[in-house]
Amino acid sequence: MKFLVTGAGGQVGSALGLMGPLNGHEVIPLDRQTLDITGTAEVRAAISNYNPDAVINTAAYTAVDKAQSEPELALAINAAGPENLALACADLDIPLLHISTDFVFDGKKSEPYSETDPIGPLSVYGSSKAEGEARVAAIGGKFLILRTAWVFGGEQNFVATMLRLGETMEELNIVDDQRGGPTASTDIAAALLSMAEQANAPAFSDWGIYHYSGAPSLTWFGFAQAIFAGRDKPVLHPIPTKDYPTPAARPKNSVLDCSKIKRVFDIDQPDWRTALSQLLT
C-alpha cells in the first residue's frame, strides 16, 4: 500500500518513514519544507498527485508553552492544516489518519478518559488540537483521529530532556502529580500503519476517534525514575505542579482508555517499558 505522511520530520513521522517500507508499504514522506499543510491548494495538489491509499497526518505545532504566545500559528497548523487535508481526502475518497492529544481534556476526571468524554482543553495548544479534531469530523469522509499522550522517541521529548539534564545536573525536581501513559513514537507508528491497512478494507466503516497510549500509567516523576533506573545520579525529587509553573496549564490526568482501539482494530495497548529499554540500550 502507498501512504502519504505529512510531518515526516517529526517523531512519529520519522518512525513511519522507517517502519512503513519494513512492512511492505511505500511511504511518501513530506516534511514542513516539502508540504505546508496550511496551504489549501498545495495540499490538494500533493494528494492528487501522489494518489495514496491513505494520508497519515503527523504534522503539528507541538511547542505547548510557546503556543500561548503564538495562538494564530498553532491554530493554523493544528486546525486549518488538518481541515485542508480532510477536505482533499474527502473529495478524493481517501482515508485520513490524524494524530491528536490528551491535551484536549482538562484532566479533572479520576478515571481514564474514553473517546466519548467531554473535552475541555486548558491551553492554546490543547484548544488548537481540539479545533483540528472538530474540523476534521465536521467534514466527514473517511477519517480516523488517534489521540495519544506523552510521546517519546526522538530528540524533543521528556526522555531526551532527562538524559540531557542528567549529564550535567546532580539533582532534578520532577512533577509528581500529573499522571499519564508514556507512548513510544515507534508504537504509535505501528498502530497507525495497522489502522491504515485495516481502514482500506471495503467493508470498514468504524471511522471516528480512538485512544492509544502506553501502559502502565504513572507520573512524570515515576517516568524519570524508570529512565534513570540503576544510576546513582541525578538524585530525583518529586514536586507538585504548583512548584513548577509553566505558561501553559497541563491536565493532571492524561490516562487514556484504550479499549476501543483493541476492540475495533485488535491493537493492544503498548508497554512503554519495552520501548524505553530499547531506546536506552
Rank of each mutant, 00 (worst) to 15 (best):
M1E: 06
M1L: 14
K2I: 11
F3M: 03
V12H: 03
V12R: 04
G13M: 05
A15W: 00
G17R: 02
L22G: 10
G24V: 10
V27K: 00
V27H: 00
I28W: 01
P29C: 01
D31Y: 00
R44V: 04
A46K: 02
A46I: 00
Y50R: 09
A60V: 10
A60W: 04
D65K: 08
S69D: 13
E70L: 14
P71S: 10
A76E: 15
A76F: 06
I77Y: 01
E83T: 03
E83P: 02
N84R: 05
A86P: 07
L87D: 05
C89H: 02
A90W: 00
D91C: 01
D93V: 00
L96T: 01
I99N: 03
S100P: 03
K109S: 14
P112C: 13
E115T: 15
D117I: 11
P118Q: 12
G120D: 13
Y125V: 09
R135S: 08
V136E: 00
A137N: 03
K142V: 02
I145T: 07
R147M: 08
R147V: 05
R147H: 08
T148L: 10
T148I: 11
A149C: 11
G153E: 01
G153L: 04
F158M: 09
F158N: 02
V159P: 02
L163T: 01
L165K: 12
G166R: 07
T168M: 06
M169E: 15
M169T: 12
M169A: 15
E170D: 10
E170M: 05
L172G: 03
L172Y: 07
N173S: 14
I174L: 09
R179L: 13
G180D: 06
G181I: 11
T186A: 12
A190M: 10
A199I: 07
P202H: 14
D206R: 15
D206V: 09
W207Y: 15
I209W: 00
H211K: 08
H211M: 06
H211Q: 14
S213H: 13
G214Q: 05
P216N: 11
S217A: 15
T219S: 15
W220K: 15
F221S: 08
F223Y: 14
A229N: 10
K233T: 14
V235G: 05
L236S: 08
L236T: 05
H237A: 07
P240E: 08
T241K: 04
D243R: 13
P245G: 11
T246Y: 05
A249H: 08
K252R: 15
K252W: 06
K252D: 14
N253I: 05
L256Q: 07
S259A: 13
K260Y: 03
K260W: 04
R263Q: 12
V264W: 02
R273W: 06
A275T: 05
S277V: 03
Q278P: 01
